[in-house]
Design a protein around this nucleic acid. Sequence first.
DNA 1: TGCATGTTTGGCAATATAGCCAAACAGATG
DNA 2: CATCTGTTTGGCTATATTGCCAAACATGCA
Lengths: 110, 110
Amino acid sequence: MQTTSAKYQQQKPQLLARTRVIKALAHPTRLFIVEELEKGERCVCDLTAMIGADVSTVSKHLTVLREAGIVVDDKRRNQVFYRLKVHCILNFFGCVESVLDSQRDEALRQ
Amino acid sequence: MQTTSAKYQQQKPQLLARTRVIKALAHPTRLFIVEELEKGERCVCDLTAMIGADVSTVSKHLTVLREAGIVVDDKRRNQVFYRLKVHCILNFFGCVESVLDSQRDEALRQ
DNA sequence: TGCATGTTTGGCAATATAGCCAAACAGATG
DNA sequence: CATCTGTTTGGCTATATTGCCAAACATGCA
């Protein structure tokens, strides 16, 4: 029996699964997309206009979010609409904001 | 007035700030550390033993978490103890699990 | 069919991340 | 002071990520 790393190794598959989801959110453009989709579905063209990057770049970001299971696409006519698949992402951000608030408080105190 | 990218550009500083926190969580080893610290403080040596990587690697992961404002360190004697600075990270994971659950359900249905 | 619009994919270059080893540093203790 | 334990930092290589352009695909419509 191995004495070191047992605990981590045992949990690793689960940790990797979670990491895949979190990594998908770890980019400003993808965060923007998620927040925008909280308001409702958007086509790639809408998102591209708001973001101001190449369409291919936005499309790849959407692929990352789709493969992570965060959004789903819906092809209608010659457009592709994306929407959130899971709607708890805002809670998620609440915690991120707590971290940032705590940093801001600290900065003020110095 | 700019017609494209205005919205994204305006929000970008905030999005980048959030991204820094999320990126810090986007690694299996760092996720493990956060979950372990939910239970209480741990010294670098404890974490290193559980993870089974080089101490320098673990130390660098801890630096990433510290710089993101997620953990704080406390040097006592010749050891350094880390603990969570913000305690809402578990809610965070709840949402990540929802994403994973929804993927699992889907896999079963196919 | 041919063309316009909207989206995805391939490919490449630039940048960022992760891991290990070696070395530096810090405190405790003989 | 010398040495031991515990931690961080520097440096390097390997790998992953990002963004753009060009090209391929898909759909709608003249």
